[in-house]
Design a protein around this nucleic acid. Structure first.
Length: 98
DNA sequence: GAATTGACTCCTA
DNA sequence: TTAGGAGCCAATT
């Protein structure tokens, strides 16, 4: 894997302020490779192992919570980001503007 | 080196 | 809203 890409993704994720969220594709695009959203997911799953990155602020482009990660909802709620009635994040209000 | 897999996204119905 | 299919790319079998 391209290590620069992975490093950049982590840098970007670290820049997401509290109370804001970003999508995988958004981060992929910012890191210079718009088509690697899936890689971002893989990297972030490892980032959790490294610890210090707010990977819970990253979701799907629709604002849906990440597949196979129920805990994310709680983590976001503790920062003031809540889901709508349909189980999605209120992207219009919380999406990170870089 | 081919086939599978996945914390993804987009389009159609 | 959900469901299915195509495209995507690196890691794993």
């Amino acid at each position: 894997m391209n290590e620069d890409f992975a490093y950049m993704v982590l840098e970007i994720v670290r820049e997401i302020p509290k109370g804001k969220v970003a999508s995988y594709s958004q981060i992929a695009a910012l890191s210079g490779y718009p088509k690697r959203a899936r890689m971002v997911g893989k990297i972030l799953s490892q980032a959790e192992y490294f610890g210090r990155y707010p990977c819970h602020r990253v979701l799907h482009s629709d604002g849906r919570l990440v597949t196979g990660w129920e805990e994310q909802r709680e983590l976001l709620a503790s920062e003031g980001v809540f889901c709508t009635a349909s189980g999605k994040i209120d992207m219009a209000s919380y999406q990170w503007e870089n």
